[in-house]
Design a protein around this nucleic acid. Sequence first.
DNA 1: CGTCTATCCTGTGGGC
DNA 2: TGCCCACAGGATAGAC
Length: 313
Amino acid sequence: MPELPEVETIVRQLAPLVEGRRIEQVEIQDPRWSRPLAPAELEDALRGRRVERLARRGKYILWHLEGDVHLAQHLRMTGSVLANPEPDPAHARVRMQFGARGRATASSGAGSAPAARRVRLVIDDPRRFGTGELLLGSDALAEFLDARLGLEPFDEGFTAEHLREALRGRRAPVKAVLLDQRSIAGVGNIYADEALFRAGIHPLRETGKLTRTQAERLREGIVASLEAGIDARGASIDDFKDIDGVKGSFQNRFLVHLRAGEPCPVCGGTIRKIVVAGRGTYVCEACQPRPRRRVRRPGARPGGRPPRPRAAR
DNA sequence: CGTCTATCCTGTGGGC
DNA sequence: TGCCCACAGGATAGAC
């Protein structure tokens, strides 16, 4: 599932391929992708525009197009962007055709595609959670992003002090806050587990109770695990692929994620799987001491949890 | 406001 | 061997 390092991997490959080219044709085959716009509306807004710059913010791929038009693309769980795929992927949701560049520079090295060649992109997405959001004007784009995303982990301003500020007063478990994109942009389930392990902090720790030292360790853990993910060109648990259909290798370097029952790489203790914030969570409870019992909720029953009513269906 | 839960969706895999 | 159903989870609307 694409998180910051996976999206970064894609954008680094994709930017030199599409920047400066014009979107000649775009075909949206799944109306969920363009919602709330109808596919034809979004197609019309994109078609014919030159890509000025491709960028990443959090887990979004940002297409900055000419005329101050922007597309904020999100891959969610199972999306991938494939360049000139052969054969055609099984769950194509969007197809884009890019024109040749204005002039071939003839500077491309041997083996790389000639600059004048056309480029075809296919967005493949089995689970259909991916989206493309049209934003007219940089103000609208900034408003959209600011409402959803906190600081970038690789931003200079992402200091221990800033992190402490972002975590202050939060009573939710620290992992839930890491997964909240409005606190820190780009961290998902994999990198939250890895960062907390590196920091020696239990995912259930109450966020607002972290010490200054722990905040600094957490900052380091976040940055280190994201960097390791980027270095490995992303993690391919299920089906993450780069634009050439090649898998990343970070799944082979997980310290704890998905390693239930295996020995902790630091202390040799057994890695356990628990559930935090509704997400599968991997932890070494020797290296990441479990917090003292969380404050009992008022009205909580003394004798175990009350029977949960099944949702009516 | 902050937190929690259900929802969207479909391929996979555990259990029998 | 094959069938079935629970499970996986990023973001978000809505409940509390």
